[in-house]
Each structure stands twice: as C-alpha cells, then as structure tokens.
Simulated scan of single mutants.
Amino acid sequence: MRIEIQEYLDSRPEEKLFVRMHPEWYRKLSRSPWELSHLKSAANQFYGRTFSQRLDRFNQRASMMSMLVSMAQAMSAQKSKD
C-alpha cells in the first residue's frame, strides 16, 4: 500500500479500523489508490453516517417517544378512572 494512503488511514482511525475489518479494501487501495473516496463512502455506510440511516434512526426514536407518551397518557387515564 502506498505511503500516502497509510498516512491517510493513520490520520483517520475509524477508516483504518474499517479497512482492518474489511481486508478486501487493502487489495482495492493497493491496486487502485484513486478509490480512496469510495472507501470513505463505504466506511460512512458501515458506521451509519449516511443521511438516510440518520433519518431512519430519528424516525425510530420519534416513534418510540410517541409510543411512550401514548402509554403514559393511557396509564394516567386509567389511574384517573380508579
């Protein structure tokens, strides 16, 4: 692997860990170092940093909060009946 790519990975520990967990990237980067931008997008997808993944997590949290609020309202309504 080229020295520039090693220095790039040394400066970004999360991407370095991604390359260690996915050894096919060693081959890709050593054969075609210009695919470094693809590494960044693949690492972002792996770590869940894409916009759609963040939006999905937000929707899940919002639905969980909605469920908790409705459960609390149901409990308080039942408590007021008793």
Rank of each mutant, 00 (worst) to 15 (best):
M1F: 08
R2T: 05
I3L: 10
E4K: 05
E4Y: 01
Q6K: 12
Q6W: 00
Y8F: 15
Y8S: 02
Y8C: 01
L9C: 08
R12K: 13
R12W: 07
E14Q: 14
E15V: 08
K16I: 06
L17M: 12
L17Y: 02
F18Q: 01
V19H: 07
R20W: 09
R20V: 08
R20C: 12
H22K: 10
H22W: 06
P23F: 03
P23R: 09
E24N: 14
W25C: 02
Y26H: 11
R27V: 06
K28L: 14
L29I: 06
L29H: 11
L29K: 10
S30R: 14
S30F: 02
R31A: 03
R31L: 07
R31S: 07
P33S: 12
W34F: 08
W34G: 07
E35W: 05
E35M: 13
L36Y: 01
L36P: 02
S37W: 03
L39P: 10
A42E: 10
A43I: 05
N44I: 00
N44L: 07
N44C: 13
N44Y: 09
Q45W: 04
Q45T: 15
F46W: 15
F46H: 15
Y47T: 07
G48V: 10
G48W: 14
G48P: 13
R49Y: 14
R49N: 13
T50Q: 01
T50N: 03
S52R: 11
S52E: 14
R54G: 14
R54K: 15
R54F: 02
D56C: 09
R61G: 04
A62S: 10
S63R: 15
M64W: 10
S66R: 14
L68A: 14
V69L: 08
V69W: 01
S70G: 00
S70A: 09
S70Q: 08
A72C: 10
Q73P: 00
A74G: 01
M75N: 11
M75F: 10
M75P: 01
S76N: 08
K79V: 04
K79Q: 10
K81M: 09
